[in-house]
């Protein structure tokens, strides 16, 4: 089987978030970029399966929509074990653009399993995997928390609100994965980093696409307000506030 993992290039999760140009653009100065953590988990799981069943998974390809600056992220994916990298040379303006670019390339190849992280840690969109499956007219399984290949068949479990379902699907399909699918992401070895130098990283020119949405402006959350004290004889008020004001229960 051939597995494709779609990876997004995102700021390191410890990045201090700032904006420029009147809060219309993310300030990229000094930002370190990483593989989106959910995508990295998808890749990790694919690699684990390939390691465990050498003959079953023929090849793992990673694909990214981005400009040349995202290549280190693709190289990292190659260093931890992906066999091939593809970069579609386009700015990932919105989820629909990204999905359209991906769909165009994928439809010309023959992947059996396409994996996406359920969201990216920058736009928190939960969009690309689902959009891609629709553009490709493929079945999709979302919120996948367990993925394996046994006797040539795909085994999937997906999270539902209040439980878990075992789902079967024909291939090809799009698996949209969430946390739990793999343990910790891999650390590249010296051998892996060296090997990544010579692994193929293909650059494909973008097609014309359109955007459906735009992140017009950004705001930072308001600074923490002082602790709101509640009378110990009125505990009910605390629960009400948590429910109605903080909206956490």
């Amino acid at each position: 089987m051939k597995i494709l993992v779609c990876i997004s290039n995102v700021p390191d999760t410890t990045t201090k978030i700032k904006f420029t140009d009147n809060n219309t653009a993310f300030d990229q100065a000094g930002v370190q970029w990483i593989i989106n953590p959910w995508d990295e988990l998808a890749l990790t799981r694919a690699l684990d399966i390939k390691d465990a069943q050498a003959g079953m998974v023929e090849e793992i390809t990673v694909i990214n929509v981005g400009l040349a600056a995202t290549e280190p992220t693709i190289r990292k994916a190659l260093a931890i074990g992906a066999d091939k990298g593809i970069r579609i040379n386009a700015e990932p303006k919105d989820a629909f653009t990204v999905a359209s670019q991906l769909a165009d390339v994928i439809s010309k190849e023959s992947f059996d399993i396409i994996l996406c992280g359920i969201e990216s840690s920058d736009s928190n969109g939960n969009n690309v995997g689902g959009m891609l499956s629709e553009l490709l007219d493929m079945p999709s399984v979302s919120s996948v928390s367990h993925f394996d290949i046994k006797d040539g068949k795909v085994e999937l479990k997906r999270e539902i609100d209040g439980g878990q379902e075992t789902v079967s699907t024909p291939i090809p399909f799009v698996g949209i994965v969430q946390k739990g699918i793999a343990k910790e992401p891999r650390i590249p070895s010296m051998r892996g980093i060296m090997g990544a130098r010579t692994k193929p990283l293909q650059v494909i020119e973008a097609i014309q696409t359109e955007t459906l949405t735009e992140f017009a402006t950004y705001d930072l959350p308001k600074p923490k307000a002082a602790c709101k004290k509640i009378d110990p004889d009125n505990v009910k008020e605390l629960v009400q506030l948590l429910h109605n004001e903080a909206k956490v229960i």
């Binding site: 280190p72 650390i187 980093i193």
Partner: peptide
């Protein structure tokens, strides 16, 4: 590559 090793 040096940055990747540092991160690793």
């Amino acid at each position: 590559e040096q940055k990747m090793i540092q991160q690793a």
